[in-house]
Write a protein that binds this DNA or RNA. Structure first.
Length: 571
RNA sequence: GGACUCGUGGCUUAGCCAGGAUAUAGCGCUGGACUUCUAAUUCAGAUGUCUCGGGUUCGAAUCCCGACGGGUCCGCCA
């Protein structure tokens, strides 16, 4: 059974079009496009054929259209200017869409298994304080992408790369071990520890003795001192636990954690350095090994890329090369979700990994920063909006709305709805924007529950659920009874879901899925307005509409699930 | 200074990779729809030199070059 109900129509249209074209003596191939509203379902442009056949495009379209025989899949095919447009027979489409969704249900939209195992590395934030809204774009993109790629038939593993070797983590540990906090500490561990990091950073900047102590700790750490490693890791783990707790609330979970220090302590970084040292494109300068980037097309001041310090100790990107070699040996594809500040580094790590003999590429996805209206966010300076505060605020606002709209619901139900709406709205509002566009964080946008938002989709899903709750189960349905334009438009939308998932996976972009979810919800709302279900004219029409409602509910559910957003039965 | 990236109604945004038929939507604005399966909904209307200038093309929001504006990077930090 076909997973994609549109595929059979598309193939048929292509075959008919090319048969007609062959009849005119042309071997040319044309790819169908999606025409504007009301002009059918597949459009074949005839511009490219104009040159070969030496006739105007509109002429060719008319001839081809005339040569296409009547076909049961299509209600009509017509030439419209320079295009040949195919209109899918609405009854056939309705039938194909409904049977595809109702057969696959929760799995509708999933592709056949590829047999490939992928790793999506995301978040990987320095464990020196709680996640802020700027960084939150990373886990939301990463988790959504993992869900999309999984529906595309891959086995997907998500991983958090824990940077436990950085100066920031040592600074945090120095703070925890040397500073005494006055007053009450915040309850959540990451929020409690960030004070030590901020305070230690401040002291380090004004007091050279503090700086010296921290530098001494770093030196010891780099000599692979196990005791200090344990002290630093302990604090990293505490902050990490706080971060993952916040993310869990948005249904973001990690399958594994890779600790940066591991690659130092188990000797893989040393092996990587030995191999790099032997290459022609590396050289040393006062004991420091560097990679000459000029021959890779990266010129200017950044053409010398340092791999070690003068004392031979490794640098961040070198350790990243070791990590990526390990990843690529374990998985068929390695995808990294990275902030735009990592663009150059990611390129260099990619070059390094290739030089070290790895054939598979690292596939980075970049996103631009989320800033505040008054400037960029910084944990060190404390100019941030913490993710936890945003979640609290969003859930509280959702709670107010539920209280206002559904006072009769039980306490437990209201709490569950507020949580789903509050966290869903955050995920949606971040994922709906293309990753590479920069965003300015505004509370009013982040807490938008109307229009293009998660609650809009959740609300439509709840409406569908409500109808199904009140209806008695139908035995069978006749898709031919569904002929209202709103019903047809909705069915066409439902039929598109598998190709939307595929497109998101191929282009590795998540914002298209949010847009699709919104479109389906909007189509469902129009159907809801135009076509009464429970009080339909007769029993047969009611059953057919119940089938359409059921299918719509599954598609909205699947789209929301792929976006990592809960779909409550009631709102 | 060099490199990368983004620039689409008042605000936010899709389309750009694979150029083609009236540029997608949301917010906001004006006006309408709750005796109707949940109005977090819906309908109508106003709002655009697709940053600017060149080029390629029968045809450019889309490709190329240049400029301008925002962001980011250019450390033996991470």
């Amino acid at each position: 059974m076909a997973t994609d109900p549109l595929a059979i129509f598309k193939e048929r249209a292509c075959a008919l079009f090319h048969d007609a074209l062959a009849g005119m003596g042309s071997e040319a191939k044309a790819v169908p496009e999606v025409p504007p509203e009301g002009m059918g379902d597949f459009a074949f442009p005839c511009f490219l054929l104009a040159k070969e056949l030496r006739r105007p495009p509109a002429d060719i379209a008319a001839s081809i259209s005339g040569a296409i025989p009547q076909d049961s899949h299509f209600s009509r095919t017509e030439a419209k200017g320079p295009y040949v447009n195919f209109h899918i027979d609405p009854a056939q489409l309705m039938s194909a869409a409904l049977s595809a969704v109702l057969e696959k249900r929760e799995d509708y939209g999933n592709a056949e298994p590829t047999g490939r195992k992928l790793l999506v590395e995301h978040t990987s934030a320095n464990p020196n304080g709680p996640l802020h809204v700027g960084r939150a774009r990373n886990p939301i993109i990463g988790d959504t992408l993992a869900r999309i790629l999984s529906r595309c038939g891959n086995t997907v593993v998500t991983e958090f790369y824990v940077d436990d070797m950085g100066k920031q983590q040592v600074t945090l540990t120095w703070g925890v071990e040397n500073l005494k906090r006055a007053g009450e500490a915040p309850h959540k561990p990451d929020h409690s520890l960030v004070w030590y990091y901020q305070e230690a950073s401040r002291l380090m900047a004004e007091d050279p003795k503090v700086l010296a102590q921290i530098d001494a700790m770093i030196a010891l750490y780099e000599k692979k001192d196990p005791a200090i490693a344990e002290r630093v890791r302990k604090n990293c783990q505490i902050v990490l636990d706080g971060m993952t707790a916040s993310l869990r609330r948005m249904d973001i979970n990690f399958d594994s954690f890779a600790w940066e220090s591991r690659y130092i302590f188990d000797g893989t970084v040393d092996r990587v350095l030995d191999e790099l040292r032997a290459l022609k494109c590396t050289a040393e300068e006062e004991g420091a090994l560097y990679l000459n980037l000029e021959e890779f097309g990266i010129t200017g001041q950044e053409s010398k890329f340092y791999l070690t310090r003068g004392d031979g100790s490794s640098l961040y990107s070198t350790r990243d090369m070791a990590y990526h070699l390990d990843k690529l040996s374990r998985y068929d594809r390695a995808i990294d979700v990275l902030g735009e500040d990592h663009r150059l580094k990611a390129r260099v790590v990619g070059i390094g990994v290739k030089l070290l003999g790895e054939e598979k590429p690292i596939e980075p996805i970049f996103y631009s920063f989320v800033s505040l209206p008054e400037g960029k966010m910084s944990t060190r300076r404390g100019t941030v909006v913490y993710l936890d505060d945003l979640i609290e605020e969003s859930v509280a606002r959702a709670r107010d709305e539920v209280e206002k709209r559904r006072p009769e619901l039980s306490e437990e139900l209201k709490r569950g709805i507020a949580e789903a709406v509050g966290t869903g709205a955050i995920r949606y509002n971040i994922i709906r924007v293309q990753a590479e566009k920069q965003m300015v964080f505004k509370w009013e946008d982040a807490l938008n529950f109307e229009g293009n938002s998660a609650p809009f989709v959740q609300y439509s899903h709840a409406r569908a659920s409500s109808i199904l709750r009140k209806a008695t189960a139908y035995e069978s349905y006749d898709p031919c009874l569904l002929t209202h334009p709103s019903e047809i438009a909705l069915a066409k939308g439902l039929a598109r879901f598998p190709s939307v998932i595929r497109e998101c996976g191929v282009s590795m972009s998540c914002h298209l899925l949010a847009q699709y979810a919104f479109e389906i919800a909007s189509l469902f709302n129009q159907f809801y307005r135009d076509c009464p279900v429970l009080v339909a004219a007769d029993e047969n029409l009611k059953n057919a509409r119940l089938a359409l409602v059921t299918a719509s509910k599954f598609v909205m559910l699947n789209a929301l699930d792929t976006l990592g957003i809960m779909a409550p039965e009631e709102l």
